[in-house]
């Protein structure tokens, strides 16, 4: 037994070290690649001597400097923060529904956010040309909560998790129908933003986006991490959690709120990005050979960050200068992983 405890610790350390290493690697690789090629040395000089360059003490190519600081870095950071948020949200929903394929996308939360966003965008287009970020976030957040509540309402009554998925998909269709209906009657110019948003992309990320999303995501991450103990008790089922002294009702509400905040933040800033939320927690479970929340919460977050930074890199470089939507890449990479895992998880 003791030997095994040590072995597992070694595995956990190895997983976390490699995840962090991969993160650093993908960040470096990501900064270095793009349609405009900038020498590596130049990039590092621009990053580490930012102040000096800005004060004009050091000379640097102004357009390259802008590409690094105004385009690549914020985009990278946004991908990392939102990728982490997305997979953490997926982990929470999988825990909550005790269903391995639960996730923001499957349960219709993304389409709920999209519907609300469409309503808001079209309603406001008469008065203001561009919708402020705060309104976008609020609309997406409300939309996520709205669909989540619906899914829960029915899910609680059905007590059958496979029915819940069906209902999630139905809600998703209803929201899409409403959205399509609105788009039919909207002017092309008014919904350009919406169409672009619904592709799912980290492009056009600004430092303000990074700051706002980090301010939402990081404290939420901390809350989830602090909840790892009750989450672990919840893994044995509500009855056992209750008998261990977990306030199950409050815990469930917290879980829903936190995962909605996370997925709402992602959908607001980057649009619906599929499969990250489902695939990444599974990858982490397989890597760790454990589903202990105290490991899974940080691992999912870091792994999600790596996954999204990498997918975004693929999205903007593979067919450069044409940029793919990140949802395309996450699906193309994520879906086969999910299929592979579903088949292989069954084996002992």
């Amino acid at each position: 037994m003791n030997v095994n405890v040590k072995l597992n610790t070694a595995r956990y350390c190895a997983v976390f070290i490699s995840l962090f290493a991969l993160f650093v690697l993908s960040v470096i690789w990501s900064i270095n690649s793009g349609s405009v090629s900038i020498p590596v040395g130049e990039i590092w000089r621009m990053i580490f001597h930012k102040g000096a360059i800005e004060r004009g003490e050091l000379a640097a190519d102004a357009s390259a400097f802008n590409i690094i600081w105004k385009i690549r870095l914020p985009r990278l950071m946004l991908a990392a923060v939102l990728g982490g948020a997305l997979s953490l949200s997926g982990f929470l929903l999988q825990t909550f529904f005790r269903n391995p394929i639960a996730g923001p996308f499957v349960l219709g939360i993304s389409s709920g956010a999209k519907m609300f966003l469409a309503v808001v965008t079209i309603a406001l287009s008469a008065w203001i040309p561009t919708v402020p970020v705060a309104v976008t976030v609020a609309a997406a957040f409300l939309g996520s909560m709205f669909t989540m509540m619906f899914a829960l309402l029915f899910g609680g009554r059905l007590k059958n998790m496979s029915m819940l998925l069906v209902i999630g998909i139905m809600i998703s269709y209803i929201c899409s129908a409403v959205t399509d209906f609105l788009i039919n009657f909207a002017k092309e110019a008014d919904i350009v933003n919406l169409t672009h948003w619904s592709m799912g992309s980290f492009s056009a990320a600004s430092w303000r986006d990074v700051k706002i999303s980090a301010l939402i995501v990081l404290p939420t991450f901390l809350c989830v991490f602090l909840l790892s103990k009750p989450i672990s008790a919840y893994a044995l089922g509500e009855g056992y959690a209750l008998s261990l002294g977990v306030n199950v009702r409050r815990f469930r509400v917290l879980l829903i709120l936190l995962s909605s905040v996370l997925s709402a933040c992602v959908t607001a800033f980057a649009g619906p990005i599929s499969f990250v939320g489902i695939a990444v927690p599974h990858i982490c479970r397989i890597l760790l050979k454990s589903s202990k929340p105290i490991l899974m919460v940080p691992a999912s977050f870091v792994c999600g960050a790596v996954f999204c930074v990498f997918c975004d890199l693929v999205a903007r470089t593979v067919f450069s200068p044409t940029e793919l939507s990140v949802g395309t890449v996450t699906s193309a990479i994520g879906a086969p992983i999910v299929i592979w895992l579903m088949i292989n998880l069954k084996k002992p």
């Binding site: 008790a233 893994a235 044995l236 089922g237 261990l244 002294g245 977990v246 589903s291 202990k292």
Partner: peptide, 20 residues
């Protein structure tokens, strides 16, 4: 209740009793 926790060993399940 038939519980089906993922990737938990018998030890982990028994250790849940230490929660309080």
């Amino acid at each position: 209740d038939r519980i089906r926790p993922e990737l938990l060993t018998a030890f982990d399940v028994a250790a849940a009793g230490r929660y309080p």
